[in-house]
Write a protein that binds this DNA or RNA. Structure first.
Lengths: 135, 135
DNA sequence: TGTACTGTAACTTTTTTAATTACAGATGAA
DNA sequence: TTCATCTGTAATTAAAAAAGTTACAGTACA
């Protein structure tokens, strides 16, 4: 996986600390040390999951979409996840081989089990729990 | 993460099915449908962890380094793992920001917890368990 | 001494991710 | 009204990572 999860958590933690006050993408980008456009792109996704509210215009900015003790880190994981955590092979195994013919289905099932374990773990941690460490 | 884990499991499953008979990198590559040199490269790593034996020379090839019910998938995961499953941000957060200053340490701790959960899950599954699905 | 393997390095290509730039649209204030 | 300051988004470029390729030395058996 890439650094999307970390970026997302960073954004959400900042928003929690802002206590409802709107933060701009530029401010957020300054804390993370990345490009503001990248922040907005990431936020677009998180907003689609209801985790962030945005306001346009001159006094616009971002705030949390839910109370921080109502957001679990699994929500964030699901929002940013594009591939199974175990990885994904890009080869096309040989169908003439007894193992090659069926392995992808078994590997996929295994990857799903692992993802379930991760989500189970991350369901027990709220954004409030995480964010509290900085207070 | 990438597809190394899948490749590794594929190799080990093939070796288990070979029942001690040596398989060549070319044969293995044929089943996975990748380059033989890539197979050898991956095997070099697995051999360092004692999971595979290799024999050089004309009648050379590969075999399992341990009994399949003595290999757990967590061994394989540890052998191929290069990054935490949650991913890793490459930015350097702003130390002038209360959140940015400490977030990496907390994110790292979180990533470690998740990895522990994965390993715990994969410790319960042996290569024999997995490989059996193909018999 | 030839053949068929492994071991490994160097290199190229492809894919993915991150960063950048640009600008339209929205909103509030002078 | 019109300017300033935001967000929203697309298009592009740059950088990094992964995968694939090629080549050849080293080893062991026949």
């Amino acid at each position: 996986m890439n650094g999307q999860f970390q970026i997302a958590i960073h954004i959400l933690t900042l928003l929690d600390h802002a206590n409802g006050e709107l933060l701009s993408s530029e401010y957020i980008a300054g804390s993370i040390n990345i490009n503001p456009a990248l922040v907005r792109k990431e936020i677009r996704n998180l907003r689609n999951y209801g985790l962030i509210n945005s306001k346009e215009g001159k006094t616009g900015g971002y705030s949390l979409g839910k109370a921080p003790d109502n957001i679990v880190l699994a929500d964030v994981y699901k929002a940013v996840k594009s591939h199974p955590a175990l990885g994904q092979a890009k080869n096309l195994p040989n169908p003439a081989c007894a193992v090659g013919r069926q392995i992808n289905q078994h590997l996929d099932a295994l990857a799903a089990e692992v993802d379930t374990a991760i989500i189970s773990k991350l369901t027990k941690i709220t954004l409030a729990d995480f964010s509290q460490k900085f207070k």
